[in-house]
Design a protein around this nucleic acid. Structure first.
Lengths: 192, 192
DNA sequence: ATCGACTGAATGAACGTTCAATCACAATGC
DNA sequence: GCATTGTGATTGAACGTTCATTCAGTCGAT
């Protein structure tokens, strides 16, 4: 039965790249099928419809991010070090997986990201939430809303990666500057 | 001939709301036409095609943002005060015009925002660029790339407005926290 | 009478989705 | 070991719908 899981993942990965490149429209099911090396009809054995496919991609993406970041968290470190790790790992992950970054950015601001989707249990969001919550409990960061904190940090990482992507060549000297943003945020949220 | 300008604006405004709500797809030209009180064909006297309409909305949106922020800038103030003004005005504008905020967020991360679009002259980006550039020249902020600076500030304002929108009710106490982000950023970019 | 904006039904291409037919393969019977 | 049957994934042509776009005809101002 592993074959079925593989094929589903294969469809998801194909769609991920294409959607990132062409947008949600601009990426017909037939194109996804061709790219994944299956017939159009096959997609409908794995997904109810195109919307369901897109939600499936989102779930996959969120799972991948969570795995990468949690695997590299080290709870024996100080929270400050864990924060910088979190930042670096998320950045690395997006840079290693530009199409995930592109898809995620697009999805977050699209109407697909409905209130319903946002309220669904989401391992990545829950992890990020509990991560910052722990920092608060340990008294190492200010008593802010952990949800807000995680959104802010994720947004900043997100946009820094986007800036690096867009300004790849013109920006050699300023990568340094971008990396400083993490210090800036840490200084802002750490307990005084 | 003012009638023509008005009608064009009317079409743009109608499309703006609908796209913000339903996404670029999910918003057919016929729907825009109905909402604007014109026939579908009329849209084609003002725009070459749907893509051109969407770019037209973008240009309109960018113009509106620029006007609001520049009109409220006061060059006689210290750069620090001007920075806080900039932040507040941009925030206010998005909160007064949620559909512009929604559209802009969506547009920035979509394939419509192509390299070509990004390289087109853009009064708002140029203003933001020159704003931060002046801060650097005056020696009041660090020597960072002004483009990077403006993107970072705009991104943070953007996402704070989004957080406020999404957490409207649950967040009474934390608005304060969100407003603190501006201090945090200022502390990070000001000259030492 | 002229001209350009406007209309909205018509067009045709594109797309999501379906489904009858096919295929791969495992289980069963001989 | 071989033939038969059953099962469920796979295919891709076909369907019906939606949509962007067109254009012949109308309207209204000059």
């Amino acid at each position: 039965m592993d074959n079925l899981v593989d094929k589903k993942k294969c469809i998801i990965k194909s769609a991920l790249c294409l959607i990132q490149e062409h947008g949600f429209h601009g990426c017909p099911v037939s194109m996804v099928a061709k790219n994944a090396g299956v017939a159009a009809g096959t997609i409908y054995t794995y997904f109810e419809n195109k919307d369901d496919l897109i939600l499936g991609i989102y779930e996959y993406v969120v799972e991948e991010i969570k795995n990468y970041v949690t695997e590299r968290d080290d709870i024996s470190l100080s929270f400050k070090d864990r924060f910088y790790n979190y930042w670096k790992n998320l950045t690395d992950f997006y840079e290693l997986n530009p199409s995930i970054h592109g898809f995620y950015d697009q999805f977050l601001n699209s109407p697909f990201n409905s209130e319903e989707t946002q309220n669904k249990p989401n391992a990545w969001h829950e992890y990020a939430y509990s991560f910052f919550n722990e920092g608060i409990k340990r008294g190492e960061i200010k008593e802010l809303n952990p949800i807000v904190l995680s959104i802010l940090v994720n947004t900043n990482v997100n946009s820094i990666v986007r800036i690096k992507k867009n300004f790849k060549n013109k920006l050699a000297k300023n990568n340094m500057v971008l990396d400083e943003i993490s210090h800036l945020i840490w200084d802002g949220i750490k307990a005084k």
